[in-house]
Design a protein around this nucleic acid. Structure first.
Lengths: 192, 192
DNA sequence: TAACTTCCATACGCAGGCGTATGGAAAGGC
DNA sequence: GCCTTTCCATACGCCTGCGTATGGAAGTTA
């Protein structure tokens, strides 16, 4: 799996142990200032170590960034599917998901990930895979709410891309107003 | 207006004359590979000249990029408002705009502009101004189509952000399929 | 305690991209 | 026909960030 061909460590998987802190630092830096801020020496300073550490854990910056994307993809699928301690009624689930989208707006990595990966075919495909998973999840919600496959597709696509677009727009409104608006928009999507 | 304090040229406004080619080259490079590809030496190579030209026309890269953004903003408002040789019926105008969004998807600068400006307050505000103009245009279309102000706001926001999100997603479908889908989605938005 | 592994510090070389200094060609003005 | 202005070429210095080489500290194993 790993490209590094050094001897296998004795314990189960200690490779990720300290490498993870680099990955987390990268995601944080990415969210704050874009991929341009993800520089090995800067991350090292953030982590209180030196480049020596980085180049022990990772081959080079390029491979590191690949791992960063995969790392995001992993915990991204986990979050979407894991966070589903949602209500039982499908309509209410749709509302809950929509509310989640609005609330987690600022904490969301999506716009940063997309802005970064937009110009790399490989990375674009990784993101597309995540999109597919999320879309199908949304579509199934609409189907469970009683919509036909075509109808559910339409609504899920509309909602998902709407949510994505939302994140790229500067919004100044207070949270409760945004939530009410989102609610009204979901109403629209729930019409037969 | 201009920050350069050299003597005023005799003719009306020749300053932009040759500077525009740099701005256009910048937009093209931006669309192809992101802001990272907008390097003065690379643009120079694209234009068949050297850096000497660049630093005659512009103070430095930073100010140049500011001008690039303003340049985009200008022709962006012109396009949105100028392209309105659209039909008379408001509903048909909405459809026409939606179709335009789908068709010009690839040619659109928006995702590249946003990916670039996302981490700069000043630039973000410039983009927000454009967003406002476009949104109000869309909202007025829905109002003209008979919707209340609130209702039109809702629908315009939904449509605009949907269109924005669309551009960040890798789409593999053929054009006519995408157009039909967009049509069905506009139907949804046009329900009372 | 000697050897080995793991993890990081230090120091350096190197390339790329920015900006500047300077000269020069072409095109008018007078 | 000179002088000025406009525009660009050439050449250079500099700084930043990447990667590498090497050593060393702490823990582990035998």
């Amino acid at each position: 799996m790993s490209t590094r061909d050094s001897k296998q460590p004795k314990q189960s998987m200690p490779e990720k142990q300290s490498g993870k802190s680099w990955l987390n630092a990268a995601l944080q830096a990415l969210a704050e200032g874009g991929i341009d801020q993800v520089r090995v020496e800067w991350l090292a300073r953030d982590l209180g170590v030196t480049k020596g550490s980085f180049y022990w854990h990772f081959k080079d910056r390029e491979q590191f960034l690949d791992e960063v994307l995969n790392y995001w993809a992993e915990q991204s699928t986990q979050t979407v599917i894991g966070n589903l301690s949602y209500p039982d009624d499908p309509v209410e689930r749709i509302r809950a998901v929509a509310e989640d989208i609005v609330r987690r707006n600022l904490a969301n990595m999506d716009p940063h990930i997309r802005s970064w990966t937009q110009y790399d075919r490989q990375k674009t495909r990784v993101v597309a895979r995540i999109d597919k998973i999320r879309f199908e999840f949304l579509r199934d919600l609409f189907r469970a709410a009683g919509f036909s496959t075509d109808s559910a597709n339409l609504r899920a696509q509309l909602l998902y891309r709407y949510a994505l677009g939302e994140q790229f727009i500067l919004v100044r409104e207070p949270m409760n107003k945004r939530l009410r608006r989102m609610d009204a928009q979901v109403d629209l999507l729930l019409q037969q």
